[in-house]
Design a protein around this nucleic acid. Structure first.
Lengths: 247, 247
DNA sequence: GAGTGGTCTAGACCACGCA
DNA sequence: GCGTGGTCTAGACCACTCT
């Protein structure tokens, strides 16, 4: 009656709750339930999958811990939405220095967008083939009305068809990816370095050429583990910092 | 028979498993079980605290998620140890750039240690009072035999009596804090900035004065939420990077 | 074989949101 | 009042470790 049953015909050796977890991730990735929509209740899923409610609960608790879903007592469980506030703070770690430590909401400055074939580095970063096209976005972000971050964003055109025909791109691109293109960013991997401002940086940020900048090299990864975006940000850290908490 | 009983005489309104969690954290912080030692079994704790095994399990799962304890099937649950490898990788995020991405094990270079009254900044960072003494450690860490990181470490002398009488400090200070002084680092808060190498940095790291360095400003926090250490590292990021994964 | 944590189930009551 | 997720319990079997 219990333990190590497989949901599919051929048993694998994952615990049941992990199998349930995997099934649910796939369904979310597949768009069975759109962002903001409610998943079936624990009971309904348990019945459908032939496991107990407690097992479904454990799988859904894991989804909630990954913030793939949001659970609300009395209402239900909902596919996480990359709304403005949410998405901004999940992957955006720029804040004011301690002891204030407040999160910062950057505003959008100038932006340029163009389409071209992927360079070799871009092919590697985004798992593309030779000849694949990408879209390059360059933009500035402001903190307290003055430019603080320059970004170069590279997107595979195949995943975001005609994204370069948008007049104005929103501040939080991830909600656009999710809402319009059905691509949810599940996680990011970032590498941080210190670099010197080149002439273009200096002009965009209003700093002296040769000023120190924090460079954030980020690859965004989708629900299906595809590399969805490559973004290189250069940040003037005189008034804001990149904050990390490890527990 | 179930639900919302309080362990202590005066009920608070925390779920039982959170109360159990809190009790266990306090006992660990208090040294009831030393690092590496086994906690009582789930059954034993459940009996002692008058709750069910499942509730104790949920509390201990949370402790494991915080990596405050390590659980081993068939053996028991053990207070986490800040061993060399462990402690190094828990809070040390320097690695090689992608696609390699391998963790790096820094070696220890020159070190200097001295005792003096806390400056104003140090008082603020470490929650000290005027006149309190601190110990300042300055040292260099090597990657691939060449200097890559300079560190300035500030410790409250009250927490680490006579630490400055040590001949050689180990590479991973956190295991020393835990093993000798009974202070476990439960988490850290870091702020990252880009700065330019001053003359001292340049000499220590073998780079040109004015080179860009990644500055990591870290406050380490103990089990009882006290600020235990303030550490400012400056890192040459030409060959290594600071890696962050968010999921 | 005894003891531990890991998984799974079944059923209960509670707190919440909504109609 | 109903359905949802949140908490708690009790009991079962499994996988692992040690003796």
């Amino acid at each position: 009656m219990q333990s190590q049953q497989a949901i599919s015909a051929i048993p694998d050796f994952q615990p049941l709750y992990k199998q349930v977890h995997t099934v649910l991730v796939k369904r979310i990735a597949n768009g069975d339930w759109g962002p903001g929509q409610a998943l079936p209740s624990e009971q309904a899923l348990a019945l459908e999958l032939g496991v107990s409610q407690g097992t479904v609960r454990k799988a859904m608790d894991a989804l909630a811990a990954q913030s793939l879903i949001v659970r609300q007592q009395g209402k239900g469980s909902f596919v996480a939405e990359h709304t403005q506030e949410h998405s901004l703070y999940r992957f955006f770690r720029i804040s004011r220095p301690a002891p204030d430590g407040a999160r910062v909401t950057p505003e959008l400055g100038a932006a340029k967008i163009k389409r071209r074939p992927a360079s070799l580095v871009e092919q590697a970063k985004l798992q593309l083939d030779k000849g694949d096209e990408i879209v390059e976005i360059r933009r500035t972000r402001l903190v307290d009305q003055s430019p603080a971050i320059v970004e170069k964003i590279i997107l595979p055109l195949a995943l975001f068809p005609d994204i370069d025909s948008n007049e104005m791109l929103p501040n939080t691109l991830y909600s656009l990816y999710q809402g319009v293109y059905g691509i949810s960013v599940a996680g990011v991997r970032e590498e941080l370095r210190a670099v010197l401002a080149n002439k273009r940086d200096a002009r965009s940020l209003g700093v002296a050429s040769g000023s120190p900048l924090l460079q954030i090299d980020r690859v965004a990864i989708g629900l299906d583990d595809r590399h969805v975006e490559w973004r290189v940000s250069r940040c003037d850290t005189r008034h804001v910092v990149y904050a990390v908490d490890v527990n």
